[in-house]
Amino acid sequence: MPTFKLPLSGDVVQTISPWTAFLSPIGNQFGLINITLGQSSAPQVEQEVLNDIGSYGKQLGRIGDALIVLLAHLPADTRLTPDERKAIDALDDMLQQIADVKARHNRAAHRPRKIAAAA
C-alpha cells in the first residue's frame, strides 16, 4: 500500500545553524549579545564619534580627568553647602575608585586627592 500524505503534511526538514544565526545581522544588531543604550537624535553622529574619537568610557575618562584638574584649583576657602560638598566628595570617591581599577590594569590614572595635596 502506498504512503498517502495530505497537503502540507509532508516531511519537514529545517537546518538551524547557530553560526548562521550568530553571524547574520538583524537590523543593526550583529552577534549573540547586543546592548542598546537608548535612542539617539543623531545616530550617525554618535556612531562616528564612537568609531573615530573615543568610546563612552574614554569620553567619561577625559571629563573625569578635567574635573580633577578643576577641583585641584578650587580655592580651599570656597564655601559649599553640605549638599554641594556631598556631591564633590561622591565624585572624588568615584574618581578614586576608577583610578584604582586603572592601576590594577597598569593604566595611567589621575587621582583627585594626590593632585589636591600637591597643589
Rank of each mutant, 00 (worst) to 15 (best):
M1I: 13
M1R: 12
M1A: 14
F4A: 10
F4Q: 12
K5I: 15
L6D: 15
S9I: 11
V12K: 13
V12P: 00
V13T: 14
V13F: 09
Q14K: 13
Q14W: 01
T15C: 04
S17D: 15
S17H: 13
S17K: 13
S17P: 08
W19T: 15
T20P: 00
L23S: 14
P25V: 07
I26V: 15
G27H: 09
G27R: 06
G27S: 13
N28G: 06
N28T: 09
N28Y: 06
G31K: 05
G31Y: 11
L32P: 00
L32I: 13
L32V: 14
I33K: 07
I33C: 02
N34H: 00
L37C: 02
L37Q: 08
G38P: 01
S40Q: 04
S41A: 10
A42W: 06
A42G: 04
Q44G: 05
Q44F: 03
E46I: 08
E48I: 08
E48L: 12
N51M: 04
I53R: 00
G54C: 07
G54D: 07
Y56G: 07
Y56P: 04
G57S: 04
G57M: 02
K58Q: 09
Q59E: 06
L60R: 11
G61V: 01
R62M: 13
R62G: 15
I63F: 08
G64L: 05
A66K: 13
A66S: 14
A66R: 09
A66M: 10
A66H: 10
L67D: 06
V69S: 08
V69M: 11
L70K: 05
L70D: 05
L71H: 09
A72Q: 10
A72R: 11
L74H: 07
P75W: 02
P75Y: 01
A76P: 00
A76Q: 14
T78M: 03
R79Q: 09
L80C: 08
T81Y: 07
D83S: 12
E84W: 05
K86D: 11
A87K: 04
I88G: 00
I88Y: 02
I88P: 00
D89H: 12
A90C: 11
D93S: 15
M94D: 15
L95W: 10
L95K: 04
Q97K: 15
I98Y: 05
I98A: 12
I98D: 09
A99Y: 04
K102P: 01
R104S: 08
R104E: 12
H105G: 02
N106K: 03
N106E: 03
R107F: 01
A108Y: 07
A108M: 12
A108C: 01
A109N: 00
A109G: 01
H110E: 14
P112W: 04
P112D: 04
R113Q: 12
K114I: 07
I115M: 11
I115D: 11
A117P: 02
A119N: 13
A119P: 05
